[in-house]
């Protein structure tokens, strides 16, 4: 008997349905086992993270406040209150500034440094130095920079030395300077990570096309613009999204460095939400603000997925 005939005989004997049934049974058996393996992770994630998220969404449609227990249904009332709140509007504007700044500065600086340090002698040392701030907790970084920006602190004294007269700027006390000052600290802390990630991306770019372009007489800018940059696109995109999410949800730095700034509650949506919920006891309204933050984060993630797909197709 040849092979095909043998298989056919076997199939006839057992029956295709039976084989499918067996396969399903095996999978069911494996599913039970798989659930045993997955259950700790599933229980934790669903119980401690996902259920609270649903609860938060539900809360945002209630009237819950202060000492009263869970309140009655309030429709979109909490959401309708937002635009009329001056602190919410300021927080929204500041958050937008944060998002813009966290796209531009860490990426520009990180990319610049990556290109600069790439072929430098002793690059390892420089990379480590630039990266170190990233290991520290944002809380500790905030405390350190709080004193750098203090009225008689490092920055004012430094500017005084350079300009030759007394500088007395309250960096963290005035509307005009507080957000830029904290953004500078954020960039100081995160640019190192961006640089390291981009260096990893750069290292993965094949050398051949660059050498070929070199031989064809392309200059360094052209090589960067038409070869390196497109090949770096996937990494760049990933880094940008990480940076946007970090900038959008920044809290610790604002909490520590903005502690004495009268407008602290409007420094960002995340801070505003904390103040509304934990300082004023407006639990339902605070939940609604959290939902808005969540929606924006979901949008950013969605944009990432779409762009990622597009970049993948482009580079393939």
């Amino acid at each position: 008997m040849d092979r095909a005939a043998k298989d056919k005989a076997l199939l006839d004997r057992i029956g295709i349905d039976q084989i499918a049934r067996n396969a399903r049974a095996r999978r069911r058996g494996q599913l039970g086992l798989a659930l045993v393996f997955m259950s700790p992770a599933l229980i934790l994630v669903v119980g401690v993270l996902l259920v609270p998220v649903l609860f938060n969404i539900w809360l945002s449609f209630t009237k819950w406040k202060k000492f009263t227990g869970f309140g009655e249904y309030a429709g979109f009332a909490n959401y309708e209150r937002m635009p009329g709140n001056p602190f919410f509007n300021e927080a929204l504007i500041n958050t937008a500034i944060w998002v813009g700044a966290s796209v531009v500065f860490p990426i520009a600086l990180g990319l610049g440094m990556a290109m600069f340090f790439r072929n430098l002698r002793g690059a390892e040392t420089f990379k480590n130095i630039i990266f170190i701030p990233r290991i520290l907790a944002p809380t500790a970084v905030g405390v350190l920079w709080f004193y750098v920006y203090a009225p008689d602190g490092l920055l004012n004294r430094g500017l005084g030395l350079v300009s030759g007269r007394d500088v007395d700027i309250g960096w963290l006390y005035s509307d005009a300077t507080v957000t830029p000052a904290i953004i500078a600290t954020f960039v100081w802390q995160t640019a190192g990570l961006v640089m390291v990630l981009l260096l990893l991306g750069l290292a993965a770019i094949p050398k051949d096309p660059i050498e070929a372009a070199h031989i064809d007489g392309a200059n360094r800018w052209q090589i960067f613009r038409y070869i390196t940059l497109p090949l770096l696109m996937p990494t760049l995109l990933m880094v940008t999204i990480l940076s946007v999410l970090a900038g959008f949800t920044v809290f610790d730095l604002l909490w520590v460095m903005g502690a004495n700034y009268p407008g602290q509650r409007s420094l960002a949506l995340a801070v505003f939400m904390y103040f509304e919920a934990f300082q004023k006891g407006s639990w339902a309204f605070g939940s609604a603000v959290a939902v808005i933050i969540g929606l924006v984060v979901l949008c950013v993630t969605w944009v990432q997925t779409v762009l990622q797909g597009r970049v993948d197709r482009m580079t393939r």
Binding site: F87, G170, Y173, S174, P262, G263, Q264, R265, F275, Q279, K280, G281
Partner: peptide, 16 residues
């Protein structure tokens, strides 16, 4: 209490 934090922040703003 609902006004406390926001009003005192304004007074701080004046002092600065």
């Amino acid at each position: 209490p609902d006004l406390q934090g926001e009003l005192v922040a304004e007074m701080n703003r004046f002092m600065l």
